[in-house]
């Protein structure tokens, strides 16, 4: 069994959602994650809030505010799952409520194992 990271990419992270909307998303996300955890395939995960505490550090240590504005896509969070193949991980990703937003995507990447470094 391998581990895969599912990275949520939001087309416009700068958009502000209402607290009610946030709560609906939260529940949808938890139902999705709960379904993965019920298969004993959930490893970990977190959301990355689009608030003020964001910076980007560039080459030569230039620091800019947030990843928003300049670049089109923003990472909104990630989960790490266990899966036997990238296909299975993709099936998990398809259930993500992030994909309800047009233009959003979930990037599926295999996580390097200890032995891959040797």
């Amino acid at each position: 069994m391998d581990e895969f990271i599912l990275i949520f990419r939001h087309e416009d992270g700068g958009k502000v959602a209402s607290p009610e909307q946030m709560q609906i998303w939260m529940k949808q996300t938890m139902d999705w994650i709960g379904g993965i955890a019920a298969q004993n395939k959930f490893v970990s995960g977190t959301g990355l809030p689009f608030d003020e505490s964001n910076r980007v550090v560039w080459h030569n240590n230039v620091v800019t505010n947030g990843p928003f504005g300049d670049i089109k896509e923003t990472i909104g969070g990630f989960v790490i799952v266990k899966a036997v193949s990238v296909e299975e991980a993709v099936e998990f990703a398809k259930g993500s409520p992030v994909l309800l937003g047009e233009g959003n995507s979930v990037e599926v990447r295999k996580i390097a194992k200890e032995e891959d470094h040797q």
Partner: peptide
């Protein structure tokens, strides 16, 4: 109840909780 089971499974998997 569903939300609580979701949280429980994230914290610790068990077949009966699933």
């Amino acid at each position: 109840i569903l939300q609580l089971f979701n949280q429980l499974l994230v914290l610790q998997y068990s077949p009966i909780a699933a």
